[in-house]
Each structure stands twice: as C-alpha cells, then as structure tokens.
Amino acid sequence: MTDSKRTIKISIPSDLDWLGVIDKTVEGITEVMDFDEFDRDSVSICVIEAATNAIQHGHETSPDKPVDLEFIMEPEILTVTVLDHGKGFSPPDLEGEIGPAPDLTRTRGRGIFLMRSMMDEISFDFDEGTLIRLVKRKSPSESEEEASA
C-alpha cells in the first residue's frame, strides 16, 4: 500500500442481512493493508459488532436509516468509524482494564467486550446518533514483512 491516507466510505441499510457486505469490505481492505489473518478476522468481527449495535440498538431495526461506515487507511493503522442516526445510548465505561469475559451464561452483552479485547482502541461519540471509532494497528511483524517485500 502507498504511504498516503485513503478513505473508503460505505452506507448500508439498517438490516442485519447487509452485515455480509461489511465483512467482504473489511476483508478486502485488510488484505490490501497486509494485515495477517488473525488481525483481519479481529477487525471483521469488531466492525460487524459495531454495525450490529447500530442496527439493533441505534436504529431499533428501522431499515429507513442508513448505517454509515468510514475506513481510513494509513500505512500502519486502520481506523473504522460506524455511525448510526438513532437516539444514542448510555456510553459504556471504557476506562481502565478490560476485565474478565462476561458471565459465561449470559446471552447478551458481549459486543463491547469483544471490541475492546480485539481492537487497539475503541471510543464512542454521541451527537446526532452514535459513532463508534475502532482502531487497529499493524503488529511489528506485519510491518516488517511489508517493508522487506
């Protein structure tokens, strides 16, 4: 990939059936950026989680409101923002250690834990909707392999 910053924007309808499009988009972008398979899967899992939140909680499954995604590609860093146009929700506490995995018998409430565990940074902004910002940095081995290629 070149040194310049590139941005790709997509919008999907607020419908879980469209999550597959996000998966394919992330797959393509992380491949171009030379992330390894583990990190590619981590990013896909987390962007799908963020979009699931937007669809199920942000829009309460109203397909008339789009979910807007922006992928900002820099040589060593991928930043993904996922924006819904709903009424927002109570911001989770993102300070301090991630803590143990949620109770194993719980059937809900693992999305933010997954995103915090698998991404390098996660933050929320609330304005007209909720914006989730996810950051993944390439690991040193991925960067070295690319430099020697």
Binding site: D23, I48, T52, G109, G111, L114
Partner: peptide, 17 residues
C-alpha cells in the same frame, strides 16, 4: 457457518442452556 456475532453467540448459549 462463516461467522457469528455477539447476538449469534447468545443464540448458541441459549440453545446450549
């Protein structure tokens, strides 16, 4: 199955329980 999200995990946990 290509992937599972956290809601899908809940479905599996519920069935398992």
């Amino acid at each position: 199955v290509s992937w599972v999200n956290s809601t899908g995990l809940g479905i599996l946990i519920s069935g398992h329980k």
